[in-house]
Write a protein that binds this DNA or RNA. Structure first.
Lengths: 225, 225
DNA sequence: ACCTGAACACCGTTCAAGT
DNA sequence: ACCTGAACACCGTTCAAGT
């Protein structure tokens, strides 16, 4: 029945890495707007202000979290052709964004990119350049690819629909207040396709990714002629 | 030198429409996180709680704002072929999102879509269906198009780069802390292309949009064979 | 050297009150 | 019927203090 404060071994010392890891898994479950400095401090059993020894402020924390996430994205391997490498990157990116929904919308917009971010862009650009793309074609391809990748992830993540049951529930929720017969095309689409047993929105991702890769291949060929 | 309170004609009565209009132009200038109920009330010269007679809460306000924005997007006209109509829609959408940057990320994710939203989806689906797309192909095309449109808008808006001078400043800001020679491909790309006088990121939009439209046309042709 | 507590200037929103 | 003021339970962050 000791009431002493257990001063020495009580808990692991706070480090930047521990703060980042806790922040990421906390955001994974409560989202970006649920990630508060006070809440994070609570998870770490520490006073809110203790965090400020390891991050400058909330924005700096988020910058650092985003760079950890960038580090989880696979870099294009040297061996494969550009299309295979970009396909792999697209799938890896999508997996990472699905695991860290809060990161969608932050990956391409940080004013202070970290090293994993820069290394990633350098590797992707390098892969395309060494495949023969000129800089203008790299810009076209990269813009198109990332717009698609981030745009799809944003839609998927914001809908937060994982199972067909979720989809049915969401559709009910969304359309209940309205007379669906005023929107016959939408009604047909939802009934005959979206709410059909086999349909999973996430399956659209690879289909679209392959369309985009084919489109880039053709655009490149056209630009060379 | 009257100090009377000017009770009758002092100001226009608060209406939902006036609240929405003020909220949109306020968000246009200060962004979504700058849009506070208290700040909006200040703009309208009204106590914060007066807003709650016209909107249920902040989320409801944002739902309604998004629907107003959807109403600004041009609907596909009956006359044109599907590709022209989708191209026009893509350009219109991009213009609208550029005018209302705060709306990017909200358009596809509202749990309570408004009438303009539903009407828009109904019209787009109808256009594709009447051009001969089956429902599965509509799903492919719509997912690909909107992922691209929203993804590009998100990147553009978050970078908040409008002039080449902005671009130069941002590039300096972003890369200053790092030894750029560790990222040779990125360095070449930025120096030889992005910071080149004629380059404007927004120009990538139409290029990519046309790639996507061509990709859909080919995918459709393939699916028919 | 590292952590804490109180305080400041903000939020959205509830509730009871004013006219 | 429509608007207001005070209050509550939150935020991020500054500053001075504890050990």
């Amino acid at each position: 029945m000791t009431t002493s404060k257990d001063p020495a071994s009580g808990r692991a010392p706070l480090t930047r890495e521990r703060v980042l890891r806790a922040a990421i898994s906390y955001a994974d479950t409560v989202g970006l707007e649920g990630l508060t400095m006070r809440g994070l401090a609570g998870v770490l059993k520490v006073a809110p202000m203790a965090l400020y020894r390891h991050v400058a402020n909330r924005e700096d924390l988020i910058d650092a979290m985003v760079d950890v996430v960038f580090g989880e994205v696979v870099l294009p391997s040297g061996g494969a052709d550009w299309k295979t490498a970009m396909r792999e990157r697209g799938l890896s990116m999508h997996g990472v964004l699905t695991r860290h929904p809060w990161a969608v919308g932050l990956m391409e917009s940080r004013r202070h990119p970290g090293q994993a971010n820069l290394r990633h862009h350098d590797a992707v650009i390098g892969k395309l350049r060494s495949a023969g793309f000129d800089v203008a074609m790299v810009a076209h391809a990269y813009s198109l690819l990332d717009s698609y990748i981030y745009g799809f992830a944003m839609t998927q993540v914001r809908m937060a629909v994982e199972t067909p049951a979720d989809m049915t529930a969401m559709a009910k929720d969304m359309f209940e207040p309205f007379p669906l017969n005023e929107y016959p095309n939408l009604a047909e689409f939802v009934n005959d396709h979206v709410m059909t047993p086999g349909y999973q929105y996430v399956d659209e991702y690879e289909y679209g990714l392959d369309c985009v890769l084919d489109a880039i291949e053709r655009a490149w060929a056209d630009s060379e002629s």
